[in-house]
Amino acid sequence: MTGSPPAPDHFDLVPDALLAGRAADGDTVAFEALARRHGPLMRASARRLTGSLADADDVVQESLVQAWKQLDTLRDGDAVKSWLLRITASRSIDQVRRRKNHSDLSDLDQRLAAGSGLAGGGAAGAGNPEAAALSGSRMEALKAAVAALPEEQRRCWVLKQFNDQSYEEIAQTLNISVASVRGRLARARVALAREMEGWR
């Protein structure tokens, strides 16, 4: 070793498992490092699943509270990322259900950019892939195509793509059968692939 090694930016160098162990001991700083590390992905997933910026932030907060309280139940510290994403997924689905039960509440939420993930599903105007394809980038076209998926298919696709869940985990999150997950995920991909082939 020559020279002076760089100082760690707090816990940037420390692997998840080590931080998770310390956080389980009550070390809030270690937990914060984990939250900072995985928070943006949790937020990104929650945004696609709930379709609302404000709901997504509620979900991330609630998920971190739950994670903190249940840290001692996490057996494998290396799995902390997928564990956090599992909590985020469940809470996102709950949040959408709550929102639907109170659909009379005025929708003050700042919605995501046109068609990029409205929770209501359906292929209404905002989710028109062709319009987006003409006006925007390939990414915008994909966002629109994802938004235009039936809600059940979109959830499966987001849980696979963003949360990296297995079929079994998705089935658990959505409380459906593994066979349904397989079918919905495949149909989602077929629909998205069709839309995106024009973008090659």
């Binding site: 404000a54 932030d57 509620d58 907060q61 609630e62």
Partner: peptide
């Protein structure tokens, strides 16, 4: 704040 988590988050946003 955590007695009203959703309220806190909304407060942070709004």
């Amino acid at each position: 704040l955590w007695q009203n988590i959703a309220g806190a988050a909304r407060s942070a946003v709004t």
